[in-house]
């Protein structure tokens, strides 16, 4: 565990807490993509299947449970909590998220380190996480006035990705044979999606115009 990894995890945790805060206290999920949240629930469910088979640390198991619990409860709130569901931008959140799941599954079946059930699903979760933010970014570009909490949620998620890349660079130089191409490329693609988004978000901010 290095400082970048810990900072990345804490940023990730903060992003989830910001979203839960918005849903719990304001009873609103305006500007939040249910498609993206469902994809994250699938990501964590498929990645953390090893929670029963391999133990890394109390910290790891605890965080896995937090991410599983929070992602499924966010989906539950957005789908079934009356007050929260009423604020959901259903007409705007139209990204076909199943068109992301299927290619990721095919890619995981073709490109993986070991052809076992757990390993293929773990790889699938990496590919899916890389693109899971897309419905959220599309929704954001369609929504004219995004509130601070939604903006902070996405900003924190982007920060988490950036810190994980620093973590991999650190581990590459400090741990022998730490080479994980699949993890790195999927993580890099994910970070580039955020970087592209932040670039246009910044242009919109300084230009005072809408995102094209």
């Amino acid at each position: 565990m290095n400082i970048f990894r810990l900072a990345g995890d804490m940023t990730h945790l903060a992003s989830v807490l910001v979203l839960l805060l918005k849903i719990h206290t304001i009873k609103s999920c305006a500007g939040v993509s249910l498609r993206t949240q469902e994809l994250y629930a699938i990501v964590f469910a498929t990645r953390y299947l090893d929670i029963f088979t391999s133990f890394v640390s109390v910290y790891n198991t605890f965080m896995k449970l937090v991410f599983l619990g929070s992602s499924f409860s966010i989906v539950w709130y957005m789908r079934y909590h009356k007050a929260v569901h009423r604020t959901y931008d259903r007409e705007q959140d139209t990204f076909r998220h199943w068109f992301l799941v299927l290619p990721c599954l095919v890619l995981a079946l073709l490109i993986h380190e070991k052809f076992t059930f757990l390993e293929v699903l773990w790889t699938f979760s990496l590919y899916l996480e890389a693109v899971a933010i897309l419905p959220q970014l599309v929704l954001l570009q369609r929504t004219r006035n995004i509130d601070n909490l939604t903006g902070q949620y996405i900003f924190l998620l982007g920060g988490y990705r950036g810190l994980y890349i620093l973590n991999w660079i650190y581990r590459y130089f400090t741990e022998p044979h730490f080479v994980h191409w699949i993890t790195w490329i999927a993580g890099l693609v994910q970070t580039l999606l955020y970087a592209d988004f932040f670039y246009y978000y910044f242009l919109r901010f300084i230009g005072g115009r809408g995102v094209e």
Binding site: D9, H12, S57, M63, Y164, R171, P176, H177, V179, T183
Partner: peptide, 10 residues
């Protein structure tokens, strides 16, 4: 070769 595993990450 032994080395760190990305499986210990979240």
């Amino acid at each position: 070769p032994r080395g760190g595993s990305a499986k210990d990450e979240l």
